[in-house]
């Protein structure tokens, strides 16, 4: 059963990019575009979700994602409740579904969920009453759909279309839910080539099956690419020895000015943040003219407004 789409193909929950039709993705990008001017006005708010209550349920810490979801909800005039679940009910032994049942009893309309376990938002979506929408704000190393959507918005904004584009995703692919969601989005939208560039220890098994080409050598992988997406080294998800040291990673895979020059001259550099200067990316590149890392953050608000309003607007 497809939890995130209704029988008529409308988005009910946003859990993963995998399996999301191209048109649904474009609808989100288009809606986000029309929300952009709202953030530049006197009153940076529209009344679309007035009276709705949105719970931000972060079972795992996050600053940027939680904040942008909160801003997005507030710009739609919803009431937002931030719950740092790690320090509350769960610490007292309550199960995930009991927490959800209790918040549903407080007349929640939407849950934005981040969880360390892959699949937790799916589980929640399966058990919530039909009028409640669930948005996955990152689960384990599985998916981070709103991040991928804002990345697609950024690419379309700077490159106009996906056809003909060569995109390289560099770094810790195996622990990255962002990379997985980006790969699904890029292949759905018809990018010409998606490359993953990483040492073997940071690549998931059978990554080729996702429709990407694999490079272990960054100097080869960056040749002639239009878009470079750098990923953060996810030390908190690493067990054992996946790489010797961050200095060694930087010398082999860090994005330096010199390496950037291998890509097309108008290539853009993206990063989902938080960035580790001198680990994945040289400061000169992060702050340089190819970097679109800060526009990504701004677009993230409009994307989250779009997703929330599309979900809330589906007939129940």
């Amino acid at each position: 059963m497809n939890l995130q789409l209704s029988r008529t193909g409308e988005m009910r929950h946003l859990l993963t990019i995998e399996g999301l039709p191209k048109q649904v993705i474009y609808d989100v990008l288009d809606a986000a575009e029309s929300f952009m001017p709202v953030t530049k006005r006197d009153v940076k708010k529209v009344p679309l979700l007035r009276g709705k209550t949105i719970f931000n349920l972060f079972f795992e810490s996050s600053t940027r994602t939680r904040t942008t979801f909160e801003i997005a909800a507030k710009r739609l005039s919803a009431d937002v409740i931030n719950i740092n679940v790690g320090t509350s009910a769960v610490a007292k032994g309550e199960s995930l579904l009991d927490t959800i049942a209790n918040l549903s009893a407080m007349n929640a309309d939407m849950f934005v969920v981040r969880h360390g376990q892959s699949g937790a938002p799916h589980l929640i979506a399966k058990y919530v009453p039909p009028h409640i929408n669930v948005i996955n704000a990152g689960d384990g190393s599985h998916a981070h759909p709103t991040q991928a959507l804002l990345d697609m918005y950024t690419i379309r904004y700077f490159k106009k279309k996906f056809e003909g584009l060569r995109v390289a995703i560099v770094g810790d692919i195996s622990h990255s839910r962002v990379a997985r969601s980006q790969i699904h989005a890029l292949t759905t939208l018809g990018a010409s080539e998606v490359r993953v560039i990483a040492p073997k220890t940071l690549l998931p098994a059978n990554v080729e099956n996702l429709g990407v080409s694999v490079y272990n050598d960054i100097a080869l992988g960056l040749q002639e690419v239009d878009v470079i997406i750098m990923l953060r080294l996810q030390r908190e998800r690493m067990s054992g020895v996946n790489l010797p040291s961050s200095q060694e990673f930087y010398s082999a895979y860090g994005l330096t000015q010199k390496r950037l020059s291998l890509a097309k001259s108008d290539a853009i550099v993206m990063h989902p943040g938080p960035i580790n200067r001198g680990v994945e990316i040289e400061s000169l590149v992060a702050d340089g003219r190819s970097s679109v890392i800060l526009p990504q953050v701004t677009f993230g608000i409009a994307i989250r407004m779009a997703v929330m309003s599309i979900l809330a607007g589906q007939a129940k």
Binding site: E10, E33, P37, D42, V46, L48, S309, G313, A315
Partner: peptide, 28 residues
């Protein structure tokens, strides 16, 4: 302006898939 974000029937009709961005480039 596209009034989609201000409609009173959003709960029934949802968001139209293509909302045009509003543009007001003068001091109101």
């Amino acid at each position: 302006i596209d009034v989609s974000f201000y409609r009173d029937d959003f709960a029934q009709r949802g968001l139209k898939s293509r909302v045009q961005p509003s543009s007001i480039e003068f001091e109101v």
